[in-house]
Design a binder for these strands. Structure first.
Lengths: 372, 372
DNA sequence: TGCTTCCATGTAAACGATTACATGGGCACT
DNA sequence: AGTGCCCATGTAATCGTTTACATGGAAGCA
């Protein structure tokens, strides 16, 4: 059975040919068929212990690694997951990504990242990516499906891969959502500010169309209402979660003759930019104006003054999303929605208004109320 | 020629079967062979305009997307690039990643990210990843090859894919390096501090074994020497680029009876943590101690006081690395080493020592000297 | 002992592209 | 008009797995 092989491949087993080891090589060495090798890897319990041992020995000896392209061509599985996010360079996402990567790695999946910086062109590209079957599933952090930018001739393609929405819920889509209770958290922060005595609480928003923004804005209004404060549109400043937006909002406030005594920024970046600008304008924080953030990014704790904010369990969010997706991929049942708890983190950038004494506050955390 | 197909596949063209469109479907519709379709996509100029038009029309009509697994199985190309980095959640990397992603995207490559958080286990896994041919090339931000943790039985595998080292040069490896002049930049910052009159300049290091650290430490010593200052080991504080390390260094300094008048931190994170700690301890920055950073991360500009630091063109670094890798992948010649310029960014955290007047400094940038 | 069942294994047909090689027609040149 | 060349295209082998189906032997049961 060694007549130089049925396909006529000459026997050259020295190092000269750098051809990758194939399953056939392993099979020959272990004196079994390729099918048995394949089974030894996929379903070891269906192979006799002796054959299995020989196969593994041969694999170790040859350093065989299955060719993923061939495997994926045949099995229609890529063991890859696409993560779509609006801005890779944003601090907020990096820790989430890490959580995702951890979990995917454990389950043997690779992570492909797509940063679609607003460009619909890229969006279409990644829709095609999914359609081409390059990934088994996707985690969407961008708040919408690819639906809008429909491809070509309305062909529905095989978009039937599992999807999970992370952070930004996708209302229209019937896919699992992993998120925090944005509305509740925003309400809670607003009420916290009110409880300290603030009567005039400004709000620096996210991008208008953003779902997070809409939730948080509702929460802000809820909080005002709960505290018996009126809603004043003049206290709503536009933003987009960036430091620059915070700076702009700060300039806006600094230029005013009468100012709110507290500002609730819907991102830590904006809060930091805003504080910075207020300080430069000669105002004191929290002496003259209290400032609260959202997210609890790394720098919130070391900002000057340290930022009072809402803590989001970013890593856990990423892990949860990955877990749900993996469940879906492997046909296990999975929850349709997961809401992780947030914490209200009390630091130094918020204090009672005006001339009340500023205690040297230490960081305190208060577990958020579970949403009902 | 329509006797239900040579493979006996029944003709069912309604939406019920969600079978993906194959090249054969396109070929049939365009009335050409699969080879022509393939060529129309890969080398349009080798197909007659008429056939080409029919092919593209058919592609549009069917919504055909080539199956990457099949393509990659045959052509041994994956159009994927692996990016290996030590810590995905680190701010410093995110903008670099974005630069990489941009360029890769333009060239039609996907990006797979691997965050090996120190675990050699993961490292081995990704070595196998490369060996399996899942990617065409890799960009390494982690400062070493996978060589150390050798796989299995010493099989050399096909590790012959193009690699590029980014930021952290890999001395032993003969692969292109994209970096900044760390030594020169550190020297420059040290001299800047000295030129303001500081005679006692502390240094907060990175991880000892880190190549960046070694370069920067040499630069620090260069700078001292150039300024005619003695090197004092007691002024070298251990760090690891994290905020916490900065805090620790700050506590160390705050506890001392005699302190340096300036501190050069080799990362902005450490500088921010350190400043924060000094301020809490009642010291003034830069009044009592000047603090300089390295990297110019987003928050450096809005720290309080705004951080004097070394600006690294992070996005450009990422783009450059991706460009070089793409050149390599496509067989084009490419430079063996690229050094991008850094800027010395002068802000408010550094001032002349002691009682000299603190001008309301504005941000100023000075282009670094080109390395010779 | 003869029949059924099951388990371990082998054989070979997909999976869906790319591409070497063959082919035939048109054009240019002598 | 004959020869040669090139261009557009088709045919079919190939990439390396997985897996449906076939097979043969051992074991269990009556």
């Amino acid at each position: 059975m060694d007549e130089s092989g049925p396909s006529g491949r000459p026997e050259q087993d020295d190092a000269s040919s750098h051809r990758a080891v194939r399953i056939q090589d392993v099979a020959k060495l272990a004196d079994v068929s390729t099918a048995t090798v394949s089974r030894a890897l996929a379903t070891p319990e269906r192979v006799s212990p002796e054959a299995r041992a020989r196969v593994f020995e041969a694999i170790a000896k040859t350093g065989y690694v299955p060719n993923p392209a061939a495997r994926s061509l045949r099995s229609q599985k890529t063991h890859m997951v696409l993560v779509v996010l609006p801005d890779l360079s944003n601090t907020f996402f990096s820790k989430i990504l890490r959580g995702i990567e951890e979990r995917l790695f454990e389950a043997g999946y690779g992570m492909i990242i797509s940063d679609l910086d607003g460009t619909p062109e890229k969006e279409a590209h990644f829709a095609a990516f999914i359609a081409a079957g390059r990934v088994d599933g996707a985690i969407l952090l961008n708040g919408h499906l690819f639906g809008q930018t429909r491809m070509g001739g309305g062909a529905t393609d095989r978009t039937g891969i599992p999807l999970v929405a992370l952070c930004e819920a996708i209302p229209s889509a019937d896919i699992p959502q992993i998120e925090i209770d944005n509305r509740g958290a925003a309400s809670r922060m607003t009420q916290h500010l009110a409880s300290l005595g603030h009567r005039s609480i400004a709000y620096v928003s996210g991008p208008e169309s953003n779902i997070l923004e809409r939730e948080r804005f509702l929460g802000y209004q809820d909080g005002l209402k709960a505290a018996g404060l009126p809603f004043d549109p003049g206290l709503v400043l536009p933003g987009d979660y960036t430091i620059e937006a915070g700076v702009a909002a700060g300039q806006n406030l600094a230029a005013r003759s009468t100012r709110p005594s507290a500002v609730f920024c819907t991102s830590d970046e904006m809060a930091i930019g805003l504080i910075r600008t207020l300080l430069s304008a000669g105002l004191r924080v929290p002496g003259d104006i209290s400032v609260a953030g959202f997210d609890d990014i790394e720098f919130a704790a070391v900002a000057e003054p340290a930022l009072t904010t809402i803590h989001q369990p970013r890593r856990e969010l990423g892990q949860a999303a990955a877990s749900v997706l993996i469940d879906l991929l492997q046909g296990r049942p999975s929850p349709k929605r997961i809401r992780l708890d947030t914490d209200l983190v009390l630091r130094d950038s918020v204090a009672p208004p005006q001339n009340m004494l500023k205690a040297p506050a230490k960081t305190t955390r208060t577990r958020a109320m579970k949403p009902t």
